[in-house]
Amino acid sequence: MRKNYGPIYVGPVAFWLCAFLSVPLLITLSYSFLAKGLYGGVEPHFSLAAYRSLFNTAVLKVLLNTIIIAVLSTALMVGLALPTAYYIARSSQKNLLLMLIIIPFWTNFLIRIYAWITILGSNGLLNSFLMGVGLTDGPIQFLYNRGAIILVIVYTTIPFAIFPLYSTIEKFDFSLIEAAMDLGASKTKALWKIMIPNIRSGITTAVLFTFIPTFGNFAVPKLVGGTSSWMLGNLIERELNITRNWPLASSMSVVLTFVTMLAVLFFMRSQNKKEL
C-alpha cells in the first residue's frame, strides 16, 4: 500500500484559506458581539449593541432599499435574459451571438459603470441632447437615485443570467415542443408549460448568480447612487472607514453573509428536489 499524499497536496490550500478566510470571518463574527472602541476598533467585552443598532429606522430603510433593488434587478435580468438566451440557443450562429454578449463583459467593471455616468451625468450625452433640442433649459439629474442603480446593476450583471440559461436551454429537447404543438397547444403555451419546467435548474442558477452580487453590491451604489438610495454595502463601508463603528460594520456583514447563505441553501435544495 502506497502512502497517502492527499494531505500534503491539500495542505497549502487548507492553510491559506484558514488563515486568510476562515479566521478573518470568525474575527468579524466575534467583533459583532463586542462593544465599540472610542476611535475605531473594539472594547473586549460582550455587547449586543451592534445588533440592537440594526433596528434603527435608518438601517432598516437601507436594508429595505437593498431588498427592493436586489429583487427588481434580479427580476429584470432574468426576464430579459430568458428570451435572449432562448434566441441564442435556437440560432444557427450560437457562438457568434454568444461572443456579442461576452465582449462587453471583458471590459473593466468600473469602465462599464463610467460609461453610464458619461451618458446620464449632468454634462452627459442625454442632457446635452435634451438641452440641444430645447426640451429642457438646465441639466436634469438622472444619476444618484434608485433607478440609476438598477440600470447599471442590470448592465454589469446580466451576463451572469444569460450564460446559465443559455446552457440549459441549449440542452433542452425541442422535439417536445413540436409534439405539444402537434397535439394542439399554441407555441407560447408549449414553451411556457414544457420548456420552462424543464429548464428550472438554469432559472434558479440565473436567479442566484444575479441576486447574490446585487444584494452585496457596493461599487455601483457608491458611484451612481445618492445618500437616499444607499445599499447595505455602502453602510458597511461607512461604519468601517468613516464612522468607525466596527461592531456595527461586523454585524451588518454577518446579516449580509446570512442572507447569502440562505439564498445558496435554497438553491441547493431546489437542485436536489429536481434529482428526486
Binding site: L17, F20, P24, I27, T28, G216, F218, S250, T260
Partner: peptide, 28 residues
C-alpha cells in the same frame, strides 16, 4: 479526513459577496 470541509471552504470566496471578504480581511 476533513476532505469535505476543505472542499466546502474552497467555495466560500466564490459565493460570498466581495465586500464581506474585503471587510473581514481588513479587520484581520
Amino acid at each position: 479526513r476533513m476532505k469535505k470541509a476543505i472542499q466546502t471552504l474552497t467555495f466560500f470566496p466564490v459565493i460570498l459577496p466581495e465586500i464581506i471578504i474585503g471587510v473581514s480581511i481588513l479587520i484581520f
